[in-house]
Amino acid sequence: MRGLLIACAALCAAPLAAQDHSAHGSHGAQQTAPPVDHCAMGHLPPEQCPPKDDHAGHAVPQDKSAPGAAPETAVPARAFEGPRHAADAIWGTEVMASSRSQLARENGGMQTGVVMIERLEARIPVGGGEEAYLWDAQAFYGGDINRFVIKTEGEGEFGGAVEDAEIQALYSRAIGPFFDLQAGVRFDPEPDTRGHLVLGVQGLAPYMFELDAALFLSDRGDLTARIEAEYDQRLNQRLILQPRIELELAAQSIPERGIGSGLTKIEPGLRLRYELAREFAPYVGLEYEAKLGDTADFARGAGEDPDGVKLIVGLRAWF
């Protein structure tokens, strides 16, 4: 029995003796932790850290600010090593040439056209007076860069003659992501026949204001200007509140048209429209119209009120 116990003890002690205790060191030896690399952890400024060595297999980013370094816009030579159009090897040169042409046409080369009726409205003076109507529309045809634009606007009294009317024919060229430079001619059939040269800009100003500003030089040497700005505040998916303001200026007096020099007229207004469809939206609103300076004096001399508030009922549509 004693011999059996001795044999079992020997078998249990053998695996324990076989374990490697060399890593534990000698008895009484104190283990030390590796030093902390404060430079690698970003705890120290670069000037207090030693220069870094290149690591094998890792490319070191080039300092673009170093003298003689390639600029950020430089194209690496390896970019030109492969075929110009790799898809040609799979689909064929003829098929891919047609696809590339279609892609270019759809991304900047497509010709489109739109007719926009900005304002078609009846205007009812709040303080009494003659009810009037107004139209303001434009159309364009072309691409994203070059367009041909037609604009027209005018007004008159119901049951009476047209008081003011104009038609513009413009070449429009994109000068940025949000603005077009426009130049062309303007013809006024009313109140008297007159032609103008036109130079202006149209686009989307910061904070999403739509801006349309133009200078007009008439065939009689009169220089005038008009600035229109509006903003669409969407209250929900169909209801839109639109503040709008229009300013008119003149470099000189034009007595035959009842226009004085300086800031001649200001028209701030507010319109609330409901989109029955995206292309069709009736609206109601209020607008204040005021003639200023010598223009107001011309209006008083003709027996007219130089300012007043109007109730507006109108329609905005496009197709």
Rank of each mutant, 00 (worst) to 15 (best):
G3R: 14
C8R: 15
C8H: 15
L11Y: 06
A17T: 11
Q19M: 03
D20A: 09
S22H: 06
A23I: 11
S26Y: 14
H27C: 07
H27R: 15
T32V: 13
A33T: 08
P35D: 06
P35Q: 08
H38I: 12
H38L: 15
G42W: 01
E47R: 09
C49T: 06
K52E: 12
D53A: 12
H55G: 10
Q62D: 14
D63W: 01
K64I: 12
S65G: 04
A69L: 05
A69I: 04
P71Y: 11
E72F: 15
A74V: 02
P76M: 13
E81L: 07
G82M: 04
H85I: 09
A86H: 15
E94Y: 11
V95Q: 12
V95C: 13
S98L: 15
S99I: 14
Q102R: 11
Q111G: 07
T112M: 07
V114Y: 05
V115I: 14
M116R: 11
I117H: 10
E118K: 07
L120Y: 08
I124K: 09
P125S: 09
G127C: 13
G129C: 06
E130P: 11
E130R: 06
A132R: 09
W135V: 02
D136C: 11
Q138P: 06
Y141E: 11
G142T: 04
D144K: 01
I145D: 05
N146L: 08
F148T: 07
T152N: 09
G154E: 01
E155I: 08
F158D: 05
G159H: 04
G160W: 12
V162M: 01
A165Y: 01
I167N: 05
Q168D: 10
S172K: 08
A174G: 13
I175L: 04
P177M: 12
Q182A: 01
A183G: 11
A183W: 04
A183D: 07
A183Y: 03
P189M: 01
P191G: 04
R194I: 04
L197V: 11
L199F: 07
G200N: 04
L204C: 00
A205W: 09
Y207M: 12
F209I: 02
E210D: 13
A214V: 05
F216Q: 00
F216H: 00
F216Y: 13
G221M: 01
D222Y: 10
L223Q: 10
L223D: 06
T224Y: 08
R226E: 12
A229K: 00
E230I: 05
R234H: 12
N236L: 05
R238G: 08
R238T: 07
Q242G: 01
E248F: 05
A250S: 10
Q252W: 02
S253F: 08
I254S: 06
I254R: 02
P268A: 02
P268L: 06
L270A: 09
Y274N: 00
E275Y: 03
E275G: 03
E275R: 13
R278M: 09
E279C: 07
Y283R: 09
L286C: 02
Y288M: 02
Y288N: 01
A290H: 06
L292R: 01
T295L: 00
F298C: 07
A302V: 03
G303E: 05
E304K: 10
P306T: 03
V309S: 00
K310R: 12
K310W: 14
K310Q: 11
I312H: 08
V313R: 08
V313C: 13
G314K: 05
R316Q: 13
W318C: 02
F319Y: 13
F319I: 10
